[in-house]
Design a protein around this nucleic acid. Structure first.
Lengths: 325, 325
DNA sequence: GGTTGACCATCAGTGATCCTTAGGCTCGGT
DNA sequence: ACCGAGCCTAAGGATCACTGATGGTCAACC
């Protein structure tokens, strides 16, 4: 019998055009995806990809299978929804750890969504940085689900008893003071930003390490005028003309007057947002919640984003294996 | 993620009303079914059954899940069909072992079915008794798929590398010479058949053993007038007035004049028809073939059958674990 | 033309999964 | 009161599925 996980992976592979990319999205290694697709071909007796050393091309059969598979998967969704609705649901309590930007700009949208009310989940929210919320997940801890982000391969570690699920990406943008007189739609090269003053993360934080590496790879050695881990503060300082800052799109939902937001192709970086959850809490309701979350985040950033698919810079583009022990 | 096998099991359980019965159908033990349903409840976070010591009652949620699940499963069916159709299918050869009644009365119907032509399977057929076709399945043998039957727990053994799949039941009926003057719709008790002459299987065959046990459990000690393992011969002899016989419904598709077919509640026995197939041959096309087979058999016997669900007599109702080593 | 980097396949190892077996429990039937 | 049908759980073993390492191929770039 076919495996639904294989079908989901198939969808992601054909959408992204590569095993490795799909693996990154789904929280697998590329090897796992390769094996899953091989298994799917074996189970169905259909050749799904023409493989070459550098890429895979879905066959005609794969594309028709994709169409059916997405129908099957949405049917399973509605099955879960219908089943959990038809039971006199005992209002599961969910203790959620969440980092500030998500709590500020996404969570309220979720709570307003009619889909939310049908879930019958009673939320307990704890807003904190990922490193802290992960602590709360340790077995017997005070959390069931933690929404965390990771920039690049930064040393975020979690127990491998947790299930990781990709929620979305939150791209960093370059924010300049409007007073510098640079147009919003200007085509900017990294080199042109070389001598500007920058507002940076506190040195030593894992984000700072990744950003420094990114800057170094562009031969950019910024002059630092401020250290701030709080994006609201960074934004306001930028608006006041202090310096440039790298701010994730989510935080730009509240955009003070006096700033210009640029898209600098050389400086592409994203916070990868994940849900970590205790295995025993992985019920259908929680599953539906994380999907609602992913949809909301996608819908939210889609309105802001230029349109091109979010790619991480080269240094962080490796597939992301599950637990850094 | 939900498991499709669990959904299929759920369907069977609600259809039959019992874990044990579903286990028998699906080729599992009752324990396996219990664990599968527990897993399904865990995965979906929905209580599916009210359990008591002697039975399970599906909840409301289970019933709605059943409705969705059957849709999902048929969607998967069409997915497989569509995918294998859209490929330029290289006409898989299937070497099929099949026992006589099935080859006589069911296989022709399949070959005439439009669904058959779409499968793109090239058949090689070998008609023989189960004990022989199973030999042909031994690894490196000359068969890919064997359709076999088993009466009760009779000592049919197959290598456990084979996949077993339940195809359907073929109920035995009591056949009497019309010359005995008994009406077709007569309500018959086993005791009334006690002193009649019977046409029986050759002693020593596994079928004979089961039938003797069944008769013994009804306190029936038949006088044997003929030994025959060939149902056509038995039928013709019965038509000629020689004696009563126990004949499976399939063989009754060719019903000679001069016989009366009875339904005797005490003497309920069925040949359980299974497909055994080499694991590596379990492609989607073969899967679809066995399903076509099951449908054809079901449709065929449904026209004959009285309507009540086919139950095996008590001595043979145990769940059937997979490999008798 | 060699080097580098991206990507896929394969293999060995390991942890998780899933089934069988065995045993225990609770009911209804005799 | 006993037996048996049917459910559950625990333990053990086979199989599955993922990770991590290795190797191969191709494109791009000096």
């Amino acid at each position: 019998m076919v495996n639904l996980l294989h079908l989901r992976t198939l969808l992601e592979v054909t959408r992204l055009g590569s095993f490795a990319a799909a693996a990154g999205r789904l929280g697998y290694t590329a090897s796992a995806v390769s094996q899953q697709m091989a298994a799917l071909e074996r189970d169905t007796g259909v050749e799904l990809f023409h493989r070459s050393a550098r890429s895979v091309v879905p066959t005609e059969a794969a594309l028709t299978m994709v169409r059916h598979a997405s129908k099957v998967l949405t049917d399973v969704e509605t099955l879960l929804a219908a089943a959990s609705r038809s039971t006199d649901s005992p209002v599961q309590e969910l203790r959620l750890g969440i980092f500030p930007s998500l709590a500020t700009y996404i969570l309220p949208d979720i709570l307003r969504n009619p889909r939310w009310k049908k879930l019958g989940i009673e939320l307990r929210v704890w807003v904190a940085e990922p490193s802290q919320t992960i602590q709360g997940l340790r077995t017997g801890g005070e959390l069931d689900l933690a929404l965390v982000y990771q920039v690049g391969q930064s040393g975020l570690a979690w127990p491998h008893t947790l299930d990781r699920q990709w929620i979305g990406d939150d791209d960093f943008r370059v924010v300049l003071p409007a007073s510098w007189g640079i147009r919003e739609d200007a085509e900017m090269q990294a080199s042109q930003l070389s001598d500007m003053p920058w507002i940076m993360h506190h040195p030593g934080t894992s984000d700072a390490v990744v950003i420094e590496r990114l800057f170094a790879s562009c031969n950019l050695h910024p002059r630092v005028v401020a250290y701030s881990d709080d994006f609201h503060a960074s934004l306001e300082m930028a608006a006041a003309g202090l310096g440039a800052a790298l701010v994730p799109e989510l935080a730009l939902r509240h955009r003070p007057p006096g700033v210009v937001v640029l898209d600098v192709p050389d400086i592409r970086l994203a916070r990868n947002v994940f849900a970590l959850l205790l295995n025993e809490k992985r019920t259908a309701q929680v599953q539906l919640f994380t999907e609602l979350l992913a949809d909301t985040l996608r819908g939210s950033t889609a309105t802001v984003r230029a349109g091109s698919p979010a790619m991480m810079p080269k240094t962080t583009q490796k597939s992301t294996p599950k637990p850094p022990a």
